[in-house]
Simulated scan of single mutants.
Amino acid sequence: MGNSYRVALAGNPNTGKSTLFNALTGLRQHTGNWAGKTVSLAQGNVQHKDKTFNLIDLPGTYSLFSNSSDEEVARNYIVFEKPDVTVVVLDATSLERNFNLALQVLEMTKNVIICINLIDVAEKQGININERILTNRLGVPVIKISARNKKGFPMLLDTIDRIVTGAIECQPVQTTYPDEIEEKIKKIEPKVSELIENQLSARWVSLRLLDGDENLLNEINKRFGQKERAQ
């Protein structure tokens, strides 16, 4: 709507995601609960150039497999509400552990920024992160920041701006699974595409169905069933 865009913040607990949210939005934020959930919802605005970015601070989770209310809320927002950009906040000192969530998000949606926080702490520990190599390998922008010191904020906001205006086109890397799983994906993906009418990533939905994700199937039936009944 106009020059307003929705930006979701996702990340593991204790990565500084909420610190980033608070630093960007300041007093321009409000909290509540997600509809039908006791999970807290925080939203806030940040002005950049001629645009308003509405930031949604998703619950901190280690995965998006809907094993808990927090995971379900975060997963459903990214998949069904389709924010204009999803920023995945990682802890620079624990990248290997944090990348599990990041790779899940890259399978779910296209417009993603990997935001590596606590870079000042990592550098003190002798950890060197080459964001250019990561950008090339992941197919999406990788930005290094320190939310506590507000370091890297101009680059992050400019990158969000360039994605929503189409100046940057994200091409997220596709995780390749063992041949047996890839064959099953190919078999059911066309049927999944018919079911979801290209509204979601058919490959990602196929993966979740192969994993027996009944919660996702119920959510798809509920949301797409509502559309059919409304027509």
Rank of each mutant, 00 (worst) to 15 (best):
Gly26Ser: 09
Leu118Val: 03
Leu210Ser: 09
Ile113Gly: 03
Gly26Gln: 11
Asn22Arg: 04
Ile114Arg: 07
Leu200Lys: 05
Leu64Trp: 11
Val121Asp: 15
Asn54Ala: 10
Gly32Trp: 13
Gln199Arg: 13
Gln199Met: 06
Gly225Ser: 01
Phe153Val: 03
Tyr77Ser: 09
Ser40Arg: 14
Gln47Phe: 07
Leu20Pro: 00
Asp50Phe: 08
Pro190Thr: 07
Leu55Gln: 01
Val173Cys: 06
Thr109Met: 08
Glu131Tyr: 14
Glu96Ser: 13
Met108Ala: 12
Ile114Met: 06
Gln174Glu: 15
Glu169Trp: 00
Ser63Ala: 10
Glu189Trp: 01
Ala167Gly: 06
Thr176Ala: 07
Gln47Ser: 07
Leu95Thr: 04
Thr86Phe: 02
Val87Asp: 00
Asn215Ile: 10
Pro190Val: 10
Gly60Val: 08
Ala35Met: 08
Phe65His: 10
Arg6Ala: 00
Asp50Met: 07
Ala230Asp: 13
Val205Thr: 04
Lys186Tyr: 10
Asn33Asp: 01
Ala147Gly: 08
Asn76Lys: 09
Pro59Ala: 09
Cys115Thr: 12
Pro83Ala: 12
Thr109Ile: 12
Ala147Arg: 08
Lys227Val: 05
Thr165Arg: 11
Gly44Glu: 05
Asn130Arg: 15
Met108Thr: 02
Pro141Phe: 08
Ala230Ser: 13
Leu58Cys: 03
Ala92Leu: 12
Ile78His: 01
Arg162Tyr: 00
Pro154Ile: 08
Trp204Asp: 12
Gly212Ile: 06
Glu180Ala: 13
Ser4Gln: 02
Ser63Arg: 09
Leu134Ser: 11
Ser63Gln: 11
Thr25Glu: 03
Glu72Thr: 02
Glu107Asn: 13
Val112Ala: 07
Ile133His: 12
Val39His: 09
Thr176Asp: 01
Val85Arg: 02
Trp204Ile: 06
Ala230Gly: 02
Ile143Arg: 06
Arg223Leu: 13
Asp57Leu: 02
Leu209Gly: 00
Lys144Thr: 04
Glu194Asp: 07
Lys17Tyr: 12
Ala202Ile: 01
Ile113His: 07
Ser18Trp: 06
Lys186Leu: 15
Val79Lys: 01
Ser206Gly: 01
Lys17Leu: 08
Val205Trp: 03
Gly139Ser: 13
Arg148Thr: 04
Glu183Val: 05
Met155Asn: 14
Leu101Thr: 06
Leu156Arg: 12
Tyr77Thr: 15
Cys115Val: 10
Ile56Arg: 04
Ser201Pro: 05
Gln226Thr: 09
Leu210Ile: 11
Thr15Asn: 10
Lys110Gly: 02
Asn100Gln: 13
Ser40Asp: 14
Glu107Gly: 15
Asn198Cys: 00
Thr25Gly: 04
Tyr62His: 08
Leu156Ser: 08
Leu24Thr: 05
Val73Leu: 04
Ile133Met: 14
Val192Gly: 04
Asp84Gly: 02
Val164Thr: 10
Asp161Arg: 01
Ser193Phe: 08
Lys124Met: 07
Gly32Glu: 11
Val140Met: 12
Ser69Lys: 15
Asn22Glu: 03
Asn221Ile: 09
Val105Leu: 13
Leu55Arg: 04
Asn149Glu: 11
Leu216His: 05
His48Val: 05
Ile181Met: 12
Lys150Arg: 15
Ser201Arg: 09
Lys187Glu: 14
Lys37Asp: 02
Asn100Glu: 13
Val88His: 11
Phe65Asn: 14
Ala202Thr: 04
Leu210Gln: 11
Ala167Trp: 06
Val105Met: 13
Asn54Gln: 14
Asn215Asp: 09
Leu9Asp: 10
Val164Gly: 06
Asn98Lys: 00
Tyr62Lys: 07
